[in-house]
Design a protein around this nucleic acid. Sequence first.
DNA 1: AGTAGTTGCGTAAACGCTTACGCAGCAGGA
DNA 2: TCCTGCTGCGTAAGCGTTTACGCAACTACT
Lengths: 354, 354
Amino acid sequence: MASSQRTAKRLTIREVAQALGVSTATVSRALHGRGRINPATRTRILAQLERMGYTPNLHAQSLAGKRSSVVALEYLGNVDILADSFLIELARGIQHSLASYHYRLLLNLTGDCEYRRGVLHQWIAGRAIDGVIVVANPCVDTAWMHALSAEGVPTVWIAYDVPHPLPPHTGVVQLNLSAGWREAIEHLNALGHRQFGLIAVDPNDPALEVIQQAIHSVNGQLAHTVFACDDTPSGGYRATLDLLERKPFPSALLARTDLLAFGVAQALHRYGIRLPHDVSLVGHDDLPLTQWMIPPLSSIRIDYLELGQRAVAMLMQLIEQRAPSVAPVCVATRLVVRDSVAPPRPNPKKEVDP
Amino acid sequence: MASSQRTAKRLTIREVAQALGVSTATVSRALHGRGRINPATRTRILAQLERMGYTPNLHAQSLAGKRSSVVALEYLGNVDILADSFLIELARGIQHSLASYHYRLLLNLTGDCEYRRGVLHQWIAGRAIDGVIVVANPCVDTAWMHALSAEGVPTVWIAYDVPHPLPPHTGVVQLNLSAGWREAIEHLNALGHRQFGLIAVDPNDPALEVIQQAIHSVNGQLAHTVFACDDTPSGGYRATLDLLERKPFPSALLARTDLLAFGVAQALHRYGIRLPHDVSLVGHDDLPLTQWMIPPLSSIRIDYLELGQRAVAMLMQLIEQRAPSVAPVCVATRLVVRDSVAPPRPNPKKEVDP
DNA sequence: AGTAGTTGCGTAAACGCTTACGCAGCAGGA
DNA sequence: TCCTGCTGCGTAAGCGTTTACGCAACTACT
């Protein structure tokens, strides 16, 4: 009967217990290897569970065990095109690690930042999640960090900077922007570039200072910084139009994100500025699709698997070991060179050398 | 005390009931508006719930209510770069609609197809999900469709073809490939294109026949079809290299997916074939990033919001109304014209112009 | 042999909610 | 007045686990 399928009774722990003449408590202990149990009994029970094809009811486990084995991934800022890239790569890295802990991932891709926070707090209050991983983009929201801490939810932030002191139950995995940008700028410098242009999004982004320092340390000059209205190709496109009006025009452009770089490349192309012949371009994040740009984009790579693995390991410390605090860790970035960089033109168009 | 936060007791339905001198049953009835309850009592209770800031424990609700308010999104085939595109756009459309039903979405981005199916069946057996949306790519897996049906899980397939008959508790939202491809080919024909080349992935893809028919109905010719090893830019790149060796070289290329088109464009560029001057190119799916290709790609658009909304509405029929079956619906596609198409060269010589 | 400590397991009370059932109270018709 | 039927609500039995507690049985000492 079709509709009886819908309400088909699943095997419960009790039925397995009865089949073996033991109590449900013993079966539960066998299942988790917790508590005092005879190893022989345990293997006997595990074999029976396997044989009968038992699968625990996750809600019952969560209710009685006071944990849900679910974590949420949340990020600051709105999701537009962004969702398709950085966040998804990261989600995948996180999920990969979570799988080994038998945790599930809840990921909200819809609605604006405000709305998503509301949903998240519902989940927390409803005990639907045991922990949260927040992607700070680009800055940590300290107020919200404390709010989450006050709710008692273990939280790991993936961020560029580490606020001090951290509230309880809060960890930070820091993405080391400095490594990648330094490498990129040194590479460009070695090719002969001295004048840099930066397309960024947020004036408070810690990356800005990192980039400036790196440029100064190679005796280069940051000729212009233009800000995009948002972290999208279209933001990058418009910002580049701004940049094109400034003089002198730099020989190397740094796009804060690959998403911006898509728009930068488009704008340059539209104005007949050839990449990398007339200008070099470097992006950040190394999204999978940037190597398919024309020309393929040089970009600063984040190891998403490692990032996810670190964040998850830290979160598990907070959740499972009930660690009250945990030391921040740092994940490096590195340059991936592709065809969008080349030595600068010996003869920059606008300023003719004598 | 920090660690007491972790185990902070949340407000329960009982406490609210006591505060008002009613029973928990009445509060529960007020909360859901189900069962026999005095409207006056109900508003009084709702006010109190609001005032005390009550949030239900989702696990308790799921356990007692025998439903989880979670659905899973699953897809056939492996996730590589694919995850960043079609699937995510769709996930977003689905999530948008699910939100209005207060359902959550579980999305597994990691592991191969086999592994993910295993996980999904665990979730089903563990009562973690009430329904599944499966993206068939490109063909419905009829055996698995029946397997899911036999497990009693309401399932909606997003597919290009509708198998008949459908097993119980199964719905299909069909993506009408014909509409978009027909429009694209007619558009190209109107520009003067007669010779077409197709870059596809799966020989069993229903799209192939649709495309052939459309080409024949405009008296065009499908000069060549090449198959990529997988649905990625790199697959498209290599397939295009194959295509470049064939003669006559078509004046218009059809990429089965935008992801392939990224690789196609790269290959053409590498061989000095200019888009759209030397050849026109149309993709399918209208991924957000394809409009930032150089030149921006003409593509066949899927309305992901509508697709998600239809799939969710259908799934809710199956879950909430316990409908044993539901009629398939169809979602159209349409061409979005950008710079990658132009009239064919008057002199289709592959040789270099003097 | 008596005591103390350990081990393995069963009993039963949670966990926080939903809902079948039944019982008053009341209205309306005979 | 009695019976019937409906309404609004409380009682209590689940839902399927986990786990604190306690009790035998056993070991290892004195």
